[in-house]
Amino acid sequence: MSWRTFEEECTAYLNEKYGIKFEQQGESDSTVSDILYRGKDKDFYVEAKMPNAQCGQFVLLPDLKNSVFKYSAKNKTSENKYTRMIVDFMDSNFDKFYNSGTAGLDINMPKSVFYNWIINYYKEKGAEFFITKDRGKFLIFPVDQFHKYFDVTAKYREKKSGSSGLNNSNKSDFEYAMGIEGIDFRFNGLDIISDSHLDGIKVSGNKYDYLVRGNGRNYKVRKLSNTRNANVIFSIELIDYDVEQQKRDVIQFENAISTH
Results as ranks from 00 to 15, higher is better:
Thr77Arg: 07
Ser28Asn: 11
Glu7Gln: 14
Ser28His: 10
Gln25Asp: 03
Val212Trp: 10
Leu36Arg: 15
Gly182Met: 00
Gly179Thr: 02
Tyr210Met: 07
Val59His: 15
Asp191Ser: 15
Gln245Thr: 03
Gly205Lys: 10
Tyr208Ser: 09
Ile236Tyr: 01
Ala177Glu: 05
Asp191Phe: 04
Phe146Lys: 00
Asp106Thr: 14
Trp117Ala: 07
Ser67Asp: 06
Ile140Asn: 07
Val68Ala: 03
Leu190Arg: 06
Leu211His: 14
Gly126Ser: 04
Ile192Lys: 04
Asp209His: 14
Val250Gly: 00
Phe58Val: 14
Ser258Val: 11
Leu64Val: 13
Ile131Leu: 01
Ala73Met: 07
Ser67Ala: 09
Leu139Pro: 07
Ser2Ile: 03
Thr259Asp: 13
Pro51His: 08
Ser196Cys: 03
Asp199Trp: 08
Tyr71Leu: 09
Ile251Phe: 08
Ala73Ile: 06
Gly200Pro: 04
Ala12Asn: 10
Ile201Gly: 02
Asp91Arg: 09
Asn226Leu: 06
Ile180Gln: 05
Phe58Cys: 09
Met50Tyr: 01
Ile236Val: 15
Tyr149Ser: 07
Ala103Met: 09
Ser78Cys: 03
Phe150Gly: 12
Lys247Pro: 00
Phe234Ser: 01
Asp195Arg: 08
Ala48Gln: 05
Glu16Thr: 02
Val232Arg: 06
Leu60Glu: 00
Tyr121Phe: 13
Leu190Lys: 13
Pro62Phe: 02
Met1Ser: 02
Gly104Thr: 14
Ala177Cys: 06
Phe69Gln: 09
Asn231Cys: 14
Arg135Asp: 13
Ala230Pro: 09
Lys202Pro: 00
Asn170Val: 15
Gly19Phe: 13
Phe146Val: 02
Ser172Val: 12
Ala73Arg: 14
Ile251Lys: 12
Thr102Asn: 10
Lys49Arg: 11
Ala230Lys: 11
Tyr122Trp: 11
Gly104Ser: 12
Gln25Ala: 10
Asn66Arg: 15
Val221Leu: 06
Asn229Glu: 14
Ser169Trp: 07
Arg217Tyr: 11
Thr11Ser: 06
Val212Glu: 07
Phe253Gly: 06
Arg228Met: 08
Phe130Glu: 01
Glu128Trp: 07
Leu238Gln: 03
Asp242Lys: 06
Leu211Asp: 11
Arg228Ile: 08
Tyr241Glu: 02
Leu105Glu: 10
Tyr149His: 10
Gly179Ile: 01
Leu60Val: 08
Glu27Ala: 11
Phe58Gln: 12
